[in-house]
Design a protein around this nucleic acid. Structure first.
Length: 222
DNA sequence: GCGACAG
DNA sequence: ATCTTGTCGC
C-alpha cells in the first residue's frame, strides 16, 4: 500500500467507522475461568496460526485450534489487520463463544483507535484485548503498582503493565467489550511470568504447526 | 530530513 | 515477523 493512496484512506475511514463501534465497557464482567490467546507465525507467504484456551485457575490448556493459509499482504504499520486479520478471523470462527481473547497487537491503542484486536473484536462481536511488547503510540504516565496509563492527546488509550519476571512492560489495551481495568486483570490472571500463557503457548504451537506444514508441503498448490 | 511507534 | 551463535543473567 502506498502512502496517501485511495486504498489507504478508504481503510482509514473503515477503521474510524469500526472504532465507533468498539465497546469499552465490561460485557460481561470477568470472574476467572478460561482465557484464549491467538498468534501467527510466517514463512514467506504461508501463515500458520494457533489459538490456545487455558483455564486461569489451573493454567492447563483446554483447547488448541490451528489454521494455515496464505497471506499476501505485507506488514504495514497501522494496518496490521490487512496482514493478520483474515487468519485470526478464521481461527476465532472455530472458537467457542464467551471466552475473552488476547491478541498479539493493539486494540484502541492505535492512531484511529482501531488496532487489530479491536478490529477483529467488532467484526466477531467477541471480547478482545490487545497485548504488545512495544509501544506504538502515546506516552506512559505515572506508574502505580504494576501498571501505568498510556496517554495520547489527553486520552487514556491503554496501559503499560509490568508482569512478574519481565523487566520491560507489556502494553495492554481495550480490544472490544472490556474495560481497561478488567483487561489488565484478565492479562494478570493469565500470566505466570513474562508473556500471558495463552499467547506464549499459541506462539509455540503456531511455530510447530508452521514447521509441520512446510515440511509436508501441504500448503503448496498442486 | 530524521526518527520511530503493533507484527 | 524473520534472518541467526553464543552468551549474560535471574
Amino acid at each position: 500500500m502506498e502512502r496517501g493512496s485511495t486504498a489507504e484512506s478508504a481503510l482509514e475511514e473503515e477503521q474510524l467507522r469500526l472504532a465507533d463501534r468498539v465497546s469499552r465497557q465490561d460485557d460481561p464482567s470477568f470472574s476467572g475461568g478460561p482465557v484464549a490467546g491467538v498468534d501467527v507465525v510466517y514463512a514467506g507467504d504461508v501463515a500458520a496460526a494457533c489459538a490456545v484456551v487455558i483455564d486461569t485457575a489451573s493454567f492447563k490448556t483446554l483447547v488448541t485450534l490451528e489454521h494455515v493459509r496464505e497471506c499476501h499482504y505485507p506488514y504495514v504499520r497501522g494496518y496490521f489487520f490487512l496482514r493478520e486479520g483474515p487468519v485470526v478471523m478464521a481461527l476465532l470462527s472455530q472458537l467457542e463463544a464467551g471466552v475473552p481473547v488476547l491478541v498479539n497487537g493493539n486494540g484502541v491503542l492505535h492512531p484511529r483507535r482501531c488496532g487489530l484486536a479491536s478490529h477483529v473484536g467488532v467484526l466477531t462481536g467477541r471480547q478482545t484485548i490487545g497485548v504488545t511488547k512495544r509501544l506504538m503510540l502515546g506516552h506512559v504516565g505515572p506508574r502505580t503498582g504494576d501498571w501505568a496509563p498510556v496517554i495520547d492527546n489527553d486520552e487514556t488509550i491503554g496501559a503499560a503493565l509490568w508482569p512478574p519476571g519481565r523487566s520491560r512492560p507489556l502494553y495492554v489495551s481495550i480490544g472490544h467489550r472490556v474495560s481497561l481495568p478488567t483487561a489488565l486483570s484478565i492479562v494478570r490472571s493469565a500470566t505466570r511470568s513474562g508473556l500471558p500463557e495463552p499467547l506464549r503457548l499459541a506462539h509455540l504451537r503456531a511455530r510447530d504447526l508452521l514447521g509441520r506444514t512446510v515440511r509436508s508441503g501441504a500448503h503448496r498448490h498442486p
